[in-house]
């Protein structure tokens, strides 16, 4: 149970990553690799500030804005300097590796003694339900685990809701249109450059927020923690799309969250059954490859079979 609870919590935290990836990859069709750097950036900034005894909420917010800044730079490189999108992301991601090391001062920052959002929600839990384990559907659950899960769920629900509402505003609608048909939104007076920069800023802000929460949950920030995270986020989005099978924004947002949760649970179970953790990224990459290729290949097979008949 503890295993599933922990996996769900990480799945929800990484759902914020999935939402960020959804924004760049799906709304803008922009393969933004910055994510690998900005998730670490969020963790690094928040961890460093927590060690300086900043209030956790502020330290988390600062992590978010650090990601916003990173996304803005990627957007500027692409929109203003006309650097290829993939390369813009790679440049910023590479630069962030050094920046993250500078922010942290060393390659790993433990947060054992610090007050974090997780320890704070644990205290709130303690006040609400008294000390000791919490009973959930007859299961005895460690208080820290339960508190962390609730925190992650609340954050994801809040962010998902805001994103959903945002996409129904004038500016949010223009953002979706900029991804769908940039020529049209330009002809209607929208600056595609500005919209893209703003979108990448929000995307990387969410991804950094995910890193910030992850650091607080697992109790450390590590300069390597971002490696392969884009692919992870993409896998979640793809699973989500398969789960909900709809293109309407609200449903897709829910799908991405569910996808992240499900993916993490599957991985946790696979690890439990003896999957070598070192193979995890390889398997994730292969999974995304298959998810990208198989539907097309199936359609091809079907039409070939149709012609043969």
């Amino acid at each position: 149970m503890t295993l599933l609870l922990g996996a769900s919590t990480v799945g929800l935290i990484l759902a914020l990553l999935a939402l960020g990836v959804y924004l760049s990859f799906r709304i803008f069709n922009f393969p933004d690799i910055t994510a690998d750097g900005s998730i670490t950036l969020g963790a690094a900034v928040t961890a460093s500030l927590l060690i300086l005894n900043w209030p956790p909420a502020l330290a988390t917010l600062a992590g978010f804005f650090a990601g916003v800044l990173a996304g803005t730079v990627t957007g500027l490189l692409n929109a203003k300097f006309r650097i290829n999108g993939l390369l813009s992301g790679i440049l910023v991601m590479t630069a962030l590796y050094s920046i993250n090391l500078h922010v942290m001062g060393k390659s790993n920052l433990p947060l054992l003694e610090e007050t974090t959002l997780v320890t704070q929600s644990e205290s709130v839990f303690g006040m609400l339900f008294g000390p000791g384990d919490v009973g959930v559907f007859g299961w005895e659950v460690n208080q820290r685990d339960a508190a962390a899960l609730c925190l992650a769920a609340a954050m994801v629900a809040g962010v998902g809701m805001i994103l959903y509402l945002f996409f129904r505003t004038e500016f949010g609608t223009a953002m979706r249109a900029a991804g769908d048909n940039p020529q049209m939104i330009r002809a209607l007076g929208g600056s595609v450059d500005f919209i893209l920069i703003f979108g990448l800023a929000v995307s990387n802000g969410l991804i950094a927020l995910s890193g910030s929460l992850l650091a607080q949950y697992q109790g450390f920030a590590d300069v390597q923690m971002g490696i392969g995270m884009v692919v992870w986020g993409l896998a979640s989005v793809i699973i989500g799309e398969a789960l909900v099978g709809s293109k309407s924004t609200g449903i897709v947002i829910t799908g991405a969250i569910m996808g992240s949760l499900l993916f993490r649970l599957i991985v946790a179970i696979a690890l439990r059954w003896g999957l070598d953790p070192n193979d995890l990224k390889l398997i994730t990459a292969v999974f995304v490859f298959l998810a990208l290729v198989v539907p097309g290949a199936l359609a091809g097979l079907r039409s070939r079979a149709g012609r043969a008949r």
Binding site: F171, L188, G189
Partner: peptide, 13 residues
């Protein structure tokens, strides 16, 4: 979107 051609697009519905 056309109803706001060339106008500011903010956070109104």
């Amino acid at each position: 979107m056309a109803a706001r051609r060339g106008l500011h697009r903010g956070l109104a519905w």
